[in-house]
Amino acid sequence: MSGLRALVRLTLNGHPVEVSCPDERVLLDLVREELHLTGTKRGCDLGTCGCCTVLLDGRPTLSCLTLARLADGRSLTTIEGLSPGTGLSPVQRAFVEHGATQCGFCTPGFIVAATALLGEHPHPTREEVVRGLSGNLCRCTGYAKIIEAVLAAAEGR
């Protein structure tokens, strides 16, 4: 059972989408369950892990704590929208080459957050990367190779 529904219009990964959506639906559920884009991960559902990070008008956003209706008229980019075709974005490539992904479950959230970070600070210091990614949890890597990968992507390595 769900409550009232309203039409939500989004630009999703560059393409217009219209979807009817109950008031109480959060973006994470919309993306995963209605739009079947499962790259955005559900790690805690409470804003305490960062696995579900998406870009809303270019800003990193916790999709588990954002009502879908409030994204109406905005541009939503998920992990699936960051790479061209079957290729990889520079951040994605750096994550692969530097072994920054182990189990991979936190990876989409980190890559979205890192992409936003590099958008704002194209040449970040290590400290800026550490601070900028301090809303994402990783249990596998100890963050070392994630930070290395983001710095490498910034330097075009």
């Binding site: 998920t78 692969v96 991979g104 990876t107 989409p108």
Partner: peptide, 11 residues
Amino acid sequence: PYIEGPLKVTG
């Protein structure tokens, strides 16, 4: 590099 890396970084 991990062989499933490209799948993991793209979701």
